[in-house]
Nucleic acid binder design. Structure first.
Length: 204
DNA sequence: TTCAGGATGTACT
DNA sequence: GTACATCCTGAAC
């Protein structure tokens, strides 16, 4: 098993967002292991990006995590009832991160489906299957990711990223998966940053 | 299938 | 008090 390490998160945030596509997100909760393949990401770069919580060097209790070491998790609550998962990029002291917007379960799908819908994966409706983990709030619900997982350092076992997981029959995927590029979602307040093409996704 | 509206809590003004 | 890196429901088509 090869985890994504510090050097991965030290690269340019936009590159990191692209290269996270196809990587495995591994979550262990209540003794259950759940693995998902990442399908959608967005880049947030504090220095130049009005959509980033830490734009212009903004430092508050919430944004403090964005200045942490590369690879640190950043989980925040949005709209009162959902959480969003990010991983911090760049050197310590530089505020930038990649938002994980979507993924598909590849191991432990029943555990994910129970957290998401309260039923096993085989009992999901067509509608539920279609809307399983295709959004940042849904993804956190399915993996039981809350703010207690905010600011977890690289190297923890509760939540990490990996290139491959041979113990679960999951091989490493190509480094340069073909991906789509577009504008980010839900940042209508961000002025010129609205149009930054920093959202990336793969078909599968 | 698309769409409007509401839910809900925390951070920050 | 306001805004928010969202999602679900129900109604109309």
């Amino acid at each position: 098993m090869a985890r994504l390490e510090r050097d991965f998160f030290l690269q340019d945030t936009v590159s990191a967002a692209q290269k996270l596509l196809g990587r495995y997100l591994v979550r262990t909760d209540g003794g259950e292991v759940m693995v998902c393949r990442i399908t959608e990401t967005e880049a947030y770069v504090g220095a130049v990006d009005k959509a980033c919580h830490a734009y212009g060097g903004r430092r508050t209790k919430r944004t403090e995590t964005l200045y942490a070491a590369p690879g640190t998790s950043y989980v925040y609550m949005i709209y009162g009832m959902y959480n969003c998962l990010n991983f911090v990029t760049g050197p310590e002291g530089v505020a930038s991160a990649v938002l994980i917007r979507g993924c598909v379960p590849v191991y432990g799908a029943d555990a994910v489906a129970r957290r998401r819908f309260g039923v096993d994966a085989s009992e999901m409706s067509a509608y539920q299957r279609k809307n399983f983990m295709n959004g940042p709030g849904k993804l956190c619900r399915g993996l039981s990711i809350g703010r207690e997982l905010n600011a977890l350092p690289l190297g923890n076992d509760a939540l990490y990223l990996a290139y491959d997981l041979p113990e679960f029959g999951l091989e490493r995927r190509p480094a340069a998966l073909p991906f789509h590029t577009g504008k980010r979602i839900g940042i209508d307040y961000a002025e010129e940053a609205i149009d930054f093409p920093w959202r990336f996704w793969v078909d599968e």
